[in-house]
Design a protein around this nucleic acid. Structure first.
Length: 831
RNA sequence: GCCGGGAUGGCGGAAUUGGUAGACGCAGCGGACUUAAAAUCCGCUGAAGUAUUAAGCUUCGUGCGGGUUCAAGUCCCGCUCCCGGCACCA
């Protein structure tokens, strides 16, 4: 008779019971653990790759309950955004309806996985009750001077028909659809995240449990660099141009200046130099070229006809317009040091214009010879007047001091980080709550009039003219000025969905608060998030924005913490046939079929067993069966002994390891080791390496089976020991395979959930066996293994080793030079 | 190019941070139960060589080349390849 865990018969029962278990009352919670999973975009169907994220989070929430915490595990929906809008256009349905359907579908999937949340706190960013407060946040930022509107060249995705933030452009392409991004001049709303650049870097240091790579990615993205801004005067114009550099030590090697094509002075310089016409042609050619292929590194340049003066030695240096200088960074002007900057070096070579290459830093030892490429290492100053002979690092400091004193330069800091462009010319987002009045100008909507509702009767097919679909809705646009009450127009752009997701973790705590976005007192009690779990793909965008918003709210006095997520865990993705799972790759594993065939616990175990959770892993259909076998192996331990287990509540007589035989002690101590391993992997400070946890529990299961081969569990010590081992196995496995574990316990007479039970502590005395395998090495090679007492002294072990027959054969006639003894481990004899 | 992470059996992966390499699982092989199959249970399973009465024994082996050490998957130096991020950032 096949004896399998009847998962179909009992899974639903447990899922329904757990719903109340996951309700978290924040008012009474004393020992709160906020376990947060990144809320998903409701795209409809989740595959097993997504499942990994939620299963890790669910198992963690459960183990935390067993650790004695009041766990807050909420879930919601990042439900504004393009896919809903595109699907709606394609199928001619309401995006709200499409979204709602997907949410229902995905909730069902969570349920099937046995992944439970506190659904009483469910939020959806597309609901007016939520986006009202997203708009409120915008107004707060506006009032603090951190939201501003500016006309600038912005990233335009012709396929999504909207602008994008810098972070959403990857290698010149739209992060979302892969279409090449072009420039468009538009008046857009920005958040002044650059004001927070330094703090966003500094506070990375208080995030102890964030993956290092995420920290470096954020650091690199913000891209802080310290340097100086030097003033260069242009001959004959009286104009001065600021130039940012981090290498002021190379100032005596400056032999030209290079300005960006978009530099406001570019035209002026050309006029002055009398090269207006050709210059304009050069600039337009350059701009076209850059757009076409940004990756091609172009070192073309055009001489403006103007000269500037090097403030270090008053030498005349030509000024060029070039493609390789970016207007967005620094001042859009670069001092050209061909000897010490590879780009400048290439520029000079390509221009074929006899621009001198003056080496001002030389390597300490070897003779330099003519430069084949720019010398970018440190060294000794040369050709640099009074600074000659100093190390360049020292010269850097000295020159800076001197220049600052003379008023030629000042210390500055530059960032790669740009302000956050939040306007989107699309329908399915939170309307930016701003009104334009001919008399009163730009004003935010009055807070008490929020939300600015999305009109439902609008034709939201985008036109691509840079205007939002909302611009077509007259009823939406025309409004009253919040200041003078006269006729006015609404802003028609909507907000980037990253604004929605930059504060949702606060809203969960006050999900039903009607008068404010959240209750600060309660939020301060519950935050920061104890454990945040999600994919690395959000390492920059979402996490950076959320950190920014929290710092802003901290400055507002609303929050008393500066970082939202104390610990971050980023799980790897699951691949199949070497590729990320996706519909287009045709390698998606549908969890529903698996769950129907093997049950949720099997799918959970396999998903967690597949490999270390922070790494990518390859899905293997066959290996799922291994997890299934394990589930049933555990089940049979119960079912084959149900005659005396049912109703027993796992009660046993007092276990006394002192009076057990070796086999019994072996099993008893295996239980202790398993408890210890689970605690080490999963409790606070653990690595969440469920894969090794599961393998430890498999070992325990195997050991119980071996024990049963020799001993009948029907009575006496063996019965007590068996029940004790099974009890612990079930407890330790509960967070991972909760349905089966609850079912076993219920049949054994428990009527309270296992998640109210605390995780056991190991009996320290039996964590280690009394004996160990002593390894005896001769010259570092293992020559014998002997059982020895764990508490043997060094000389006892040495004696055992020297007396060993095999070892003596190996030593033969040779003298022993040295003996290394590691108690509890090995003896190494050096001859 | 710069930054970060990797490379261990046929496969996924373990190895108390320097102390038995290959836990656990998959696949494979053998056995038990069965009329048979499935399911289940038990055992074997890094490579090469060697043995013969067998238990065995020997050598090699953690991407490559050096080094430190009684001892290296683990530490140091120098490479190769793979994955991720950034990329004309002055």
């Amino acid at each position: 008779m096949s004896d399998h865990f009847p998962f179909k018969e009992c899974e639903d029962k447990w899922r329904d019971r757990w719903e109340t278990l996951f309700r978290c009352d924040l008012e009474t919670a004393e020992n709160l653990y906020y376990c947060l999973m990144m809320f998903p975009y409701p795209s409809g169907n989740l595959h097993v790759g997504h499942g990994r994220n939620y299963i890790i989070g669910d198992a963690l929430a459960r183990i935390k309950m067993m650790e004695g915490y009041d766990v807050l595990a909420p879930m919601g929906w990042d439900s504004f955004g393009l896919p809903a809008e595109n699907a709606a256009i394609k199928n001619n349905i309401d995006p709200a309806e499409w979204t709602e359907r997907n949410i229902a579908q995905m909730k069902k999937q969570f349920y099937q996985w046995g992944v439970i949340y506190d659904w009483s706190r469910e939020i959806a960013s597309c609901q007016p009750e939520y986006y009202k407060w997203t708009q409120y946040l915008f107004i707060q930022l506006y009032e603090a001077g951190l939201a501003y509107r500016e006309e600038s060249a912005v990233n335009w995705c012709p396929s999504c028909k909207t602008v994008l933030a810098n972070e959403q452009v990857v290698g010149g392409e739209c992060e979302r659809c892969g279409e090449e991004v072009s420039d468009k001049k538009l008046k857009q709303w920005f958040f002044r995240i650059t004001d927070y650049a330094d703090r966003l870097i500094e506070d990375l240091s208080i995030l102890e449990n964030w993956p290092r790579r995420v920290i470096t990615m954020q650091k690199n993205w913000i891209g802080r660099s310290e340097g100086v801004e030097i003033k260069f005067s242009v001959e004959g114009t009286g104009e001065e141009m600021g130039c940012f550099t981090t290498r002021i030590d190379t100032i005596y090697g400056v032999t030209f200046l290079a300005v960006a094509a978009e530099h406001p002075f570019a035209e002026k310089l050309l006029k002055k130099g009398g090269r207006e016409k050709e210059g304009a042609r050069f600039i337009s050619r350059l701009k076209a070229l850059q757009r076409e292929d940004r990756t091609e590194k172009n070192k073309d340049g055009f001489f403006t006809g103007c000269y500037a003066v090097n403030p270090a030695d008053n030498r005349r240096i030509p000024v060029f317009i070039t493609g390789y200088v970016l207007m967005e960074y620094g001042t859009g002007l670069v001092m050209g040091v061909p000897a010490h900057d590879q780009r400048d070096f290439e520029f000079v070579r390509e221009m074929e214009m006899d621009i001198p290459v003056i080496q001002v830093i030389k390597p300490e030892s070897s003779d330099p010879g003519p430069l084949e490429e720019a010398y970018v290492e440190n060294g000794i100053m040369a050709n640099s007047g009074k600074y000659d002979g100093l190390s360049n690092l020292e010269a850097m400091e000295r020159i800076t001091e001197d220049f600052v004193e003379d008023g030629i330069a000042e210390r500055t800091v530059n960032y790669k980080l740009r302000d956050w462009l939040i306007s989107r010319q699309r329908y399915w987002g939170a309307p930016i709550p701003v009104v334009y009045c001919d008399k009163c100008g730009v004003n935010p909507v009055r807070k008490e009039e929020l939300p600015v509702l999305l009109p439902e009767d609008v034709d939201f097919i985008p036109t691509g003219d840079g205007k939002s679909p909302l611009a077509k809705s007259e009823s939406f646009i025309s409004t009253e000025c919040p200041v003078c009450g006269g006729p006015a127009r609404r802003e028609t752009d909507t907000m980037d969905t990253f604004v929605d997701s930059s504060w949702y973790f606060l809203r969960y705590i006050s999900a039903h608060e009607e008068d404010k976005p959240f209750d600060p007192e309660l939020v301060n009690r519950c935050m920061p998030v104890d454990q945040y779990i999600g994919g690395v793909e959000h390492a920059i965008l979402h996490l950076l924005y959320s950190r920014f918003i929290v710092k802003f709210l901290y400055d507002q006095g609303d929050l008393d913490f500066r970082e939202p997520f104390k610990n971050l865990f980023t799980q790897g993705m699951i691949t199949r046939n070497g590729a990320k799972m996706s519909k287009s790759a045709g390698n998606v594993v549908n969890p529903r079929e698996l769950i129907e065939r093997f049950g949720a616990d099997t799918v959970r175990i396999y998903t967690l067993f597949i490999g270390p959770p922070e790494k990518d892993a390859e899905w293997n259909d066959r290996a799922v069966e291994g997890a299934y076998r394990f589930v049933n192996r555990v089940w049979r331990l119960y079912s084959q002994n149900s005659s005396f287990l049912d109703g027993s509540r796992f009660e046993t007589g007092k276990l006394d390891p002192e009076s057990m035989n070796d086999d019994q002690v072996g099993l008893y101590s295996k239980v202790q080791k398993s408890i210890d391993k689970v605690r080490e992997d999963l409790l606070t400070g653990g690595s969440f390496h469920f894969n090794t946890t599961i393998s430890a529990l498999m070992e325990l299961t195997n050991e119980i089976y071996s024990f049963l081969l020799e001993y009948s569990p029907e009575e006496g010590v063996n019965r007590d020991l068996f029940i004790y081992a099974l009890d612990n196995l079930v407890l330790l496995l509960s967070p991972i395979a909760p349905h089966m574990c609850e079912e076993i316990r219920e049949r054994c007479g428990f009527n309270e959930t296992v998640f109210s039970r605390t995780i056991p502590k190991p009996d320290e005395d039996y964590l280690r066996s009394e004996t160990f395998t002593l390894v005896i090495q001769v010259n570092g090679k293992v020559r014998a293994r002997v059982e020895a007492d764990l508490d043997s002294e060094r000389d006892e072990l040495e004696k055992i080793a020297l007396e060993n027959e095999r070892v003596r054969e190996f030593i033969g006639e040779r003298d022993i030079k040295k003996v290394i003894v590691v108690p509890g481990k090995l003896v190494n004899l050096v001859v």
